[in-house]
């Protein structure tokens, strides 16, 4: 099944100029999102997941940020060529985003209804009455009980899970083709997490929205995504279908991540953790960024950054595959 390409990102570089030096939060990222698919993006804290997402939304503040990509096309439209005005038309209607902290992601000074209706009026040119009805529909869509009453509530009157549902309702109210969910469940407790994930799946299948699910939890991805991109220190190190990735993780970092999953080795006392810590983004190691922590490190890894090797739709950035895969 060859789905159409929705988002194509080539060689994304996002830098932040700070007092201590330049942080390359994204250092040559290639990503492809197909229509109606769920793509998981996994990586440790600070590896540049949010920076990548915000670069696509064109929401990186400048200064200190600087974004450049060879290609950043959504439905064939180059996002980097859009004016600020065109961008605000695209945001929320073609591509939208929800964030990690539902408690602070809604404006405390306005009711749920005011915020939801504002977005609907902005994008769909509805009158107040129609927008109001549409807002109730959106809340029903994300399974918020007593939707009409909830419209008059302020965010602080709702629970964390409810707020994340409202965020989803706002993000999906105008039927975007891509939803970026940046750690949407990290701040929620486990049962609510499961409900939100289920809701994401349902939105994807009912509204045909493609979802880019950002998380540092591989097990979430295993549950709902079709493909995964594993990020490490500003680059994508492996990109494969969920099935392939879990059956045959190629990159040593991915292997380490899988080995540290609690579910897969419940019988063990201690989890397998990757030795070493997250690299300092200001001072990245030479050669492959992962080599100081890599159990298979050899000479070339210390000297030269590996390119992405690919085979049958899987991609891996590791010298171990230089022979068996294509550059």
């Amino acid at each position: 099944m060859l789905a159409e390409i929705l988002l194509e990102l080539r060689n994304l570089k996002t830098k932040f100029k700070t007092y201590d030096g330049e942080v390359k939060a994204a250092d040559g990222i290639d990503l492809t999102v197909h229509k109606k698919e769920i793509l998981g993006i996994v990586g440790e804290s600070g590896c540049g997941k949010s920076a990548t997402a915000l670069s696509i939304m064109r929401l990186i503040p400048s200064p200190p940020g600087e974004v450049h990509a060879d290609k950043m096309e959504l439905n064939g439209v180059e996002l980097q060529s859009l004016t600020e005005k065109q961008l605000s038309k695209v945001r929320g209607s073609e591509i939208s985003m929800i964030f990690q902290e539902p408690s602070s992601a809604l404006n405390p000074a306005f009711t749920i209804g005011e915020q939801l209706i504002e977005v609907l009026i902005l994008h769909q040119k509805l009158d107040r009455g129609a927008a109001h009805r549409q807002a109730i529909k959106a809340l029903n869509l994300v399974q918020i009980p007593a939707a009409t009453q909830r419209l008059a509530d302020y965010p602080h009157q709702l629970s964390g899970g409810m707020r994340q549902r409202v965020m989803l309702a706002m993000a999906c109210a105008c039927m975007p083709s891509l939803l970026i969910a940046d750690e949407p469940t990290t701040a929620l407790d486990v049962t609510v997490q499961a409900q939100i994930l289920e809701l994401l799946c349902q939105l994807q299948s009912e509204l045909n929205i493609a979802i880019m699910l950002i998380t540092h939890d591989l097990s979430l991805v295993a549950e709902i995504a079709q493909r995964v991109a594993v990020m490490y220190a500003g680059v994508v190190v492996e990109n494969a279908s969920v099935r392939n990735l879990f059956a045959k993780p190629r990159h040593p970092y991915t292997q380490g991540l899988l080995a540290s999953l609690p579910l897969l080795n419940a019988e063990r006392e201690r989890l397998n953790v990757i030795p070493g810590g997250v690299p300092n983004m200001l001072n990245l190691p030479k050669g492959c960024r992962f080599h100081p922590r890599c159990p298979h490190c050899w000479q070339i890894c210390r000297q030269q950054e590996p390119p992405l090797f690919s085979q049958n739709g899987s991609e891996v950035r590791c010298w171990l595959f230089a022979r068996e895969m294509n550059k």
Partner: peptide, 26 residues
């Protein structure tokens, strides 16, 4: 710098409205 300002921008609220409605009120 609050998250809800980011949300407003991500939902396509124009910058003027972000500043004069969402931010100013708070």
């Amino acid at each position: 710098s609050q998250n809800y300002i980011q949300t407003a921008r991500a939902n396509g609220v124009p910058e003027r409205k972000v500043v004069y409605k969402h931010a100013l009120r708070n």
